[in-house]
C-alpha cells in the first residue's frame, strides 16, 4: 500500500511517500505565497524520485498550518495528531514530543499508540520558534547552522529578559556592542528560546521519554540548552522536519485499512 503525507508548514512544505510503513521518498520546497502549488510541486518531485505516478498513491493526507490549501489531499489531520503519529513510529519510546518549526512551537504528550493525551501550542510569540533564530543569526551575521555549532563553544550564558522577538533583537545588538563574544550571545539566545519551549513542555507534563522533531531539532545548540533547562536527555531522529509528514502518511494508510 502506498500513501503520502503533505506537511504544509509556514516556511517549508514537506512530502513523504511510504510503502507499507517504510519511507520510499521525501521532498521539500519553500511554501512561498502559493502553498497549494508548492505542495503539488513537492509531491510531484517525491513521486518522481520514487518512480511513481499520482495514481499509484492510494491516499494523501495533509497536515500543517496550510493543510486546508492542499486540495489534492483526501483528508487532513492536525499538526499535533500528525506529529504524535510520526514520532511514535520513528522513536517508539517517546511519550512527550516537542515540535519546533519556523513559526510555532508545540508540546504534546501521547500514549504508546501515538494517541495525543495533552497538547499545547505557542504560535503567538515568535521568540518560541525557528524564525526567531533566523532573526538573531542575521544580527550576528552568521547562518542559523553556524549559530548552533558556535553556541557549543560558549563559556557563559547572558540572561536575556525580553519576551518579544523584536525587543530580544535589541538586546542582542546591545550585547554585540558590549563586545560579548558571538558564541556566548548564540548560547544566550538558545537559552532564552529553550525557556519558552520548556514552559510548554511543563504544561503538558514532562516525562523522561522526551523526543524532539521539527527543523529546530537539527540545531545542536538549541537542543543542548533545552536538555539543560528540562534536565533530561532528548531523543532525536534523522530528518526531524519530515516527521509530521510521515505521520500524515501513516494516518492515510490507517484510514484505508
Amino acid at each position: 500500500m502506498i500513501t503520502a503525507g503533505v506537511d504544509a508548514g509556514n516556511k517549508f512544505t514537506k512530502v513523504v511517500i511510504i510503502r507499507d510503513g517504510e519511507v520510499i521518498s521525501r521532498d521539500q520546497l519553500p511554501s512561498g505565497f502559493d502553498r497549494r502549488q508548492s505542495a503539488f510541486k513537492a509531491f510531484k518531485r517525491a513521486l518522481s524520485t520514487a518512480g511513481l505516478n499520482e495514481d499509484d498513491v492510494q491516499k494523501v493526507m495533509a497536515t500543517g498550518a496550510g493543510r486546508s490549501e492542499v486540495d489534492f489531499a483526501g483528508g487532513t489531520v492536525t499538526e499535533v495528531g500528525a506529529a504524535a503519529r510520526g514520532s511514535i513510529h520513528v522513536i517508539p519510546e517517546s511519550r512527550t514530543v516537542i515540535d519546533v518549526g519556523a513559526e510555532e512551537g508545540r508540546a504534546l504528550k501521547m500514549d504508546e499508540t501515538g494517541k495525543v493525551l495533552n497538547f499545547t501550542i505557542s504560535d503567538k510569540c515568535a521568540a518560541g520558534a525557528g524564525s526567531f533564530i533566523e532573526m538573531m543569526s542575521q544580527a550576528l551575521e552568521i547562518t542559523p547552522e553556524e549559530m548552533g555549532s558556535l553556541s557549543l563553544q560558549a563559556v557563559q550564558t547572558v540572561p536575556m529578559n525580553a519576551q518579544c522577538a523584536v525587543f530580544a533583537e535589541s538586546e542582542v545588538i546591545s550585547l554585540i556592542h558590549s563586545r560579548v563574544p558571538k558564541a556566548d550571545i548564540a548560547r544566550s539566545v538558545f537559552n532564552a528560546m529553550a525557556g519558552r519551549i520548556s514552559s510548554l513542555v511543563r504544561r503538558v507534563g514532562l516525562n523522561k521519554e522526551l523526543a524532539m522533531i521539527g527543523g529546530m531539532a537539527k540545531n545542536p545548540g538549541f537542543v543542548r540548552e533545552l536538555e539543560k533547562d528540562l534536565d533530561t536527555k532528548i531523543f532525536l531522529t534523522e530528518n526531524p522536519d519530515f516527521v509530521s509528514a510521515l505521520g500524515a502518511a501513516l494516518i492515510a494508510a490507517e484510514k484505508i485499512s
Partner: peptide
Amino acid sequence: MIANYGYKD
C-alpha cells in the same frame, strides 16, 4: 485528551 488553547507572553 487535554487540549490547551491560548498562549504565554
